[in-house]
Design a protein around this nucleic acid. Sequence first.
DNA 1: TTACTTGCAAACCCTTTGCACCAGT
DNA 2: ACTGGTGCAAAGGGTTTGCAAGTAA
Lengths: 138, 138
Amino acid sequence: MSDLVERLRGRGWRMTAQRRVVAEVLTGDHVHLTADEVLARATARLPEISRATVYNTLGELVSLGEVVEVTAHGRAKRYDPNAHRPHQHLVCSECGTIRDVHPGGDPLTDLPDSERFGYTVSEVEVTYRGHCPDCAGL
Amino acid sequence: MSDLVERLRGRGWRMTAQRRVVAEVLTGDHVHLTADEVLARATARLPEISRATVYNTLGELVSLGEVVEVTAHGRAKRYDPNAHRPHQHLVCSECGTIRDVHPGGDPLTDLPDSERFGYTVSEVEVTYRGHCPDCAGL
DNA sequence: TTACTTGCAAACCCTTTGCACCAGT
DNA sequence: ACTGGTGCAAAGGGTTTGCAAGTAA
């Protein structure tokens, strides 16, 4: 039984078989599944689960801060359950595979070999997210 | 006449009215247009231009390294012609508006007030892009 | 001339939605 | 019982594609 399920129950999240299965599928390190992959794995355990419910649940987990969305250019979003340990992402531009990384020094210049997982690194991108002045009050 | 058009011609890129218009629309600082916006502005100058051509041309400019794609979670990609001066992005999670920023110290902790454009900043995300071992030879 | 580019419309992928039914608490 | 979650199927936004006709070099 996953920590995540416990935590969510503690927060008063209404627990259902579908939500439990989605939460359980999203467990572990270096887990970065697309919604489709989550659906496939969830279906293996609970055949009646629907695509809509998977999307609903993923969206809620993201809002609750339990799961992080990772966007790779032009591909389906991936969902990363490792939201409580700060880390960054290393993305393959070819196949979209993602690894979690923990850069040591200046993220713009250093990604230690030990954190490259055999990837070549050709680009580093930093994105700050927040609210612009016009949207600040919303 | 834009520098970009000159540079592309110099690289042997076959020049057409459509491509010139797209390249000219993508000129300036803090320009981060969606494909749709590029189409709208291009159409204003060249009414017969098609959506497909705009997408083709944007894709080529990205491949040529003249334009950078910026992806905001769940929104249309935006195209940034400022590919030759290194910079990072500040994205409004609400409306998707983007500003170019130049962080000073450690990107993970510091975004100077002078670089915030009145935005609040709630999240910093670093993404490394490259090829995974399986895709390295492609 | 000839290979490359364009326009059109349909196809595509991923995600969201409307609504009637069902189920935790 | 009440509130909120689920499944289905259809719609939606953004992007890509196949192919015939057009055009830069």
